[in-house]
Amino acid sequence: MNYKFCMTLALAAALFSPGCATKTTYVDNDSSRLIANVDEINIQDFARAADEMVQSIIEDCISTGDLEGVDGKKPILAISRIVNNTSMQFDTDLLIKRIRTALLKTKKVQTTTTLNLARSEDPLAEMADAEEEIITEERMKHSYSLSGKIIEVTTRTRNLRQSSYEFQLTISNRRGLVVWEDIKTITKQGKKASVGF
């Protein structure tokens, strides 16, 4: 009896000790201790793809002065359709918002919340813009539009899975001529999700 009691107590102590408790901890967004999944696009993948795309846009397009606005004004970049062709469901703003934020910070491009393919991002600004259009009889026009597609390619061996996510983005002018285009691919291999990469 005494032996059983001691064993139960030891087992309980081991199970409820701090070492075994599953704690929730905060992790920096730029940490390598984030969770990485083979068959998902993780938050760090969106940040990486957006970062590489922004570097490419700045180097090939903004820095060379290829993006020109009307009457010497800053070029206005509108967001067109971003197609999610993966098996996952996610908000494409995880990619696009990062790109837009970084481009706006360059002070070389103007982005907009009202000129969107779908519904306006800011309805109040859209109403004010409509009023302004009636007063000035001048409609705000975008100079360039950003479109793209995210594609998934998966393959597997007997005990290993591989997923490639291809981010394809294009900036076109009003006539549909492509002024910038790039592709970034992120490939992941593994069996299951892991903490840390």
Partner: peptide, 24 residues
Amino acid sequence: SPLDHRTPTQIEGGQRKSIPILAT
């Protein structure tokens, strides 16, 4: 920046690798 992240990569034995980064 919202673009901050750590990039995972590999380098093979004997390989020379260049990592170019542009300030955004």
